[in-house]
């Protein structure tokens, strides 16, 4: 049995997103396993980023349920009970269920602990690398500063928390190899470093699920390999599961445990990388042939 069926972290059920008459995502269901790197792939315009925006609260899906689990897996049994209540989340000792489709975007990150990066990098370019990582720890620091009041008075509790936040930023600077550029504005970094910084910034929110929208776009093969190492490290060391959209097959096939393929908003394949790679429907979607010709094309590709 696959891990995403056995120990799912995130469950999408019957997700549909319509923009006027356009159906961007059509009745999509899949789950992402805890500790897995799940890749969401598909041709351009397949609706991948829309799915991401639904998960992270930037879009409200037209229909469907997106549920995320914290803690023990048993809590899934209470999903229907939680859905029946009007609450956005159900939290009890050692476990929690979050109904992401009901949450506004900032709560998805603040409470459900789902962090994301963007297809076109969204760093705070006028702030330094270090400041970018500190802004990401906003909610923790806000509590420590007694919602600014205690911080303004300069109480030691806040100063300790601030020191800890800088230590955490240093830890991530070390991981992404940007320690020397900590005091430079983020907008001055080369493209590859900006991609890494955006991932580190998302990780500073201590997520359980990290959603990466095309993290390897525009990277050279060497940077791509570094990114693979970084993502595998995040899964091993930090125990954060990853959901990523990617076109770069070297990244997808090398690091992911589970691949979901979308085409025209519908799921066409779902499984381990090897299974998906050989799925005739996927080959057809990517090469653009009709179903009857698939076998011929497949033979050609494999030979």
């Amino acid at each position: 049995m696959n891990r995403w069926e056995e120990k799912p972290l995130l469950k999408l059920e019957h997700l549909t997103m319509r923009f006027g008459g356009l159906v961007a995502v059509n009745d999509l269901s899949f789950s992402a396993g805890e500790g897995d790197i799940t890749a969401l792939i598909g041709p351009n315009g397949a609706g991948k980023t829309t799915v991401f925006n639904c998960i992270t609260g930037f879009y409200k899906p037209t229909e469907g349920r997106i549920a995320l689990r914290h803690g023990e897996a048993k809590v899934w049994d209470e999903l229907d009970a939680a859905t029946a209540r009007p609450d956005r989340r159900m939290v009890r000792a050692g476990a929690g269920l979050y109904l992401l489709e009901r949450m506004p975007d900032f709560e998805v990150s603040a409470h459900a602990k789902v962090a994301r990066t963007f297809q076109n990098i969204r760093l705070f370019s006028g702030m330094t690398v270090l400041e970018n990582l500190l802004v990401a720890q906003h909610n923790a620091l806000m509590t420590a500063s007694g919602f600014t009041v205690l911080g303004l008075l300069g109480l030691p509790a806040y100063r300790k928390a601030e020191k800890a936040s800088i230590e955490k930023a240093k830890y991530w600077l070390d991981r992404i190899d940007l320690m020397d550029r900590a005091d430079d504005p983020a907008g001055d970094l080369p493209y590859g470093a900006q991609r890494r910084l955006e991932i580190a910034r998302a990780m500073c929110t201590e997520p359980v699920l990290l959603c990466l929208d095309e993290p390897a776009a525009g990277l050279n093969p060497r940077e791509s390999a570094d990114l693979n190492a970084l993502l595998l490290g995040i899964r091993e060391k930090d125990g954060t599961s990853i959901l990523l959209i990617e076109h770069d097959m070297s990244v997808v096939m090398e690091i992911s445990d589970h691949v979901v393929v979308l085409d025209y908003g519908t799921k066409i394949s779902d499984g381990k990388p090897d299974f998906v790679r050989n799925d005739p429907k996927v080959i057809a979607a990517y090469l653009g042939v009709s179903d009857e010709e698939v076998e011929a094309v497949e033979a050609e590709v494999l030979s």
Binding site: E131, V135, H138, R201
Partner: peptide
């Protein structure tokens, strides 16, 4: 810092739980 981050990029702020 959140004010300045807001001036830089509001969407990124929301993705960080602000």
């Amino acid at each position: 810092r959140a004010w300045e981050a807001l001036r830089e990029d509001e969407i990124a702020c929301r993705s960080l739980g602000i």
